[in-house]
Amino acid sequence: MNQCLQTIADYGLRAFGYGERLLPRSDFTLCQQFTLIGSGLLWNIYFAVLALAAGFVLANALALCKASAHPLLRKPAEWFIFVFRGSPLFIQFFLAYEALVLLPRAGIEIFGLTVQTGWVTRAWAGATLVLILNTAAYSAEIFHGALRNLPRGEIEAADAYGFSGWQRFRKIVWPTMLRLAWPSYTNEAIFLFHATTLVFFSGFPAFQQKGDALYYARYFAEQTFNPFVAYPIVAGYFVALTLLLIWVFGLINRRLNRHLPGAARKLRYRPNLIR
């Protein structure tokens, strides 16, 4: 037990470069595997949270642009969504990495200030950028689909109440769009979270063996030649976190649907189930 605490102290933040420099080489314990893979998981969470937060905002803007009647707004949004939805993520990683390493190493001069560029080829910046753009495109498509499916009656009701454009959007269109899009958006969030495992798998290089959960799982699977321990551990971690994610998104979903008879019915039925 104490030994395991020591391992956690040594490797708990190894993925960010703190603690022991060398990874364990022999006599692998379960504790080591859980600790290191868990430490890598922090990267997956980092990528997912940043990409989802930034991607959500961007996706809303893109969906509205795509639904716009004005071609100057619609066309670029359509193309952006098409390209990012139309290509595999790891090709996006590959091309992004190839492009980012072309930036001048010494930095770019802007108004006398030298902007460092070395960091953009690192996973924490470069991969996050790709993930943001990727999830924005997928989510925008979902939101756009939901916009098309807005119930006619709700818009008519808003018009009847004399809601102006922004008011109508803020109070009727946007909440209803989210409500309709939410189950698919939950899926997209899960996909994105899972896609973070691709960052070091085929996208960006790992420095000093600082990698994500799958990176360490692969390390252990390679060292022990046994896929049946390390991979189920990552899988377990991901199931737990995905359940958490589904739960959070479910809460939001319930809030979005709280005025609907179906949602109310669900709540009423609950006690029956427990009995």
Binding site: N187, I190, T197, L214, Y231, V234, A235, F238, T242, I246
Partner: peptide, 19 residues
């Protein structure tokens, strides 16, 4: 649905087919 959705497909594919 919740179990399989919980596991990233890469990881699923890394050991489930062997199993």
């Amino acid at each position: 649905t919740s179990m399989v959705r919980g596991v990233p497909d890469i990881i699923f594919f890394l050991f489930v087919p062997i199993a």
